[in-house]
Design a protein around this nucleic acid. Structure first.
Lengths: 242, 242
DNA sequence: GCAAAAGTGTTCAATATACACCCATGG
DNA sequence: CCATGGGTGTATATTGAACACTTTTGC
């Protein structure tokens, strides 16, 4: 880091949150309705400006998550996604926002938090639909978040972070199918996930079903990485010949 | 993004660069010697504060790269790595720095740029050695950069970004071996990389050698993703049982 | 018994691994 | 003709893909 004259321009620093979940067979994202200008009344990612108290970026993201959505930061996966700072992305002044990506389980405490004005789950397809008016460059951020999520569940065990504390193999498979938008073979999937050491821990419980054999219940195991990765139909290489 | 009172604390925003290359059979990183306090005389990543002119983060990274290292931004791969903002990481005031990762080919114009005071290539092993005094939290950043590089060459064609415009399969293999710190079978590696469509484009040229069959020369092809990925001995899962 | 969903076994193809072997050059 | 590194062939093991089939429940 150099010191080109040590002139620090007035740049505001914010932290935004892209909180994803899988609900009703759809990938959904937490959005809030803006109560003030600019973009008043439009949908936006939860977030806020960085306070100057001694607080790390990660801690700021966790604080915003709790304040704006009422979700428990310790109960879900949170990681830095990307930092956005294009001039003009905020009409008021230069704002650089560090965006975090979170994976939340399905019914994550019915969205009742302190500052949560109009926080709600919105299907990603709806949020990105041209008809939806999104504040700032949040459409671009949502696209990046979804792409990161799609990639991460391929080589990590994070798909289980979308599931409740106890879940079945079929529920986990549905997560992959919804996030990737493609159907997986239930038989091969079952063998795959139960074969990876540390991915799933059987609880001994079984589901009660409405016709059909009961499924075994699992908890998330200690493994974070998947070796080998979950197989997936090769993504078309958008930036060149694959 | 919310507006908690619209009080913007005095936070400085910087852009830092982790520029990696493979030289002399070692992964090396570009460091500059700091000329001013704090950390005067210590080694640091090139970078600088974000100017308030209308300039995107990517553009700022490219500008810093040109100014501080003399490298041509258009000639190498540049991507956002991570944003660091731990309180106290700069003793002067709160500084949030957006760090970029760059992959440079071997002899990248002998480090002669404008502001390049004492820019030099340093083996990563040396930079991270306890004896080396690094400014700020740049040791942590370098570790993150190396880990990202190790992962990226696995499923992208970026390893070729470490090679000169024309290179042999053996040179590319050496890149993998140096970055991963493990030896690869030359025969299988050759078949693998020449078999991936769009990875390597033969130029028709051949090397002149000092004993040994001349090798075919290749250029980087249009492909960016590797399907399937370059095989690699499974990394131990540091955060759980794999 | 029948429908439905869970879970197992088996076959076949694609890919990784190991390594024998041939090729092309300089000395 | 030998040393040296480039490049191909091939056998074996591992993994993915497809799908027949068995298990266990509700009705």
């Amino acid at each position: 880091m150099t010191d080109n004259g040590w002139k620090i321009p007035e740049i505001a620093v914010a932290v935004d949150l892209a909180v994803l979940t899988v609900r009703d067979d759809a990938l959904q994202i937490m959005l809030v309705e803006r109560g003030v200008e600019p973009f008043r009344g439009m949908q936006a990612l939860p977030g806020g400006f960085l306070s100057d108290v001694a607080e790390s970026l990660d801690a700021a993201a966790e604080r915003e998550l709790a304040e704006e959505t009422g979700l428990d930061p310790s109960a879900l996966h949170l990681e830095q996604l990307h930092t956005y700072g294009t001039p003009g992305r905020d009409p008021r002044q230069r704002v650089v926002t560090i965006c975090y990506l979170a994976f939340a389980p399905d019914p994550p405490a019915p969205v009742a938090g302190g500052d949560a004005r109009a926080a709600s789950w919105v299907p990603v397809a709806t949020a990105l639909h041209p008809g939806t008016r999104l504040a700032f460059d949040h459409g671009e951020i949502i696209r990046d978040a979804v792409e990161r999520a799609r990639n991460k569940i391929e080589y990590t065990t994070l798909a289980a972070a979308f599931c409740p504390p106890e879940f079945t193999v079929a529920e986990l498979r549905r997560v992959y199918e919804v996030v990737w938008g493609e159907l997986l073979d239930p038989r091969n999937f079952h063998r795959k996930v139960t074969g990876v050491a540390g991915f799933l821990v059987p609880t001994g419980g079984r589901t009660t079903r409405q016709g059909g054999r009961p499924a075994a219940l699992y908890r998330r195991g200690p493994a974070h990485l998947l070796h080998p990765a979950m197989p997936r139909s090769p993504a078309p290489d958008a930036t060149g010949t694959s």
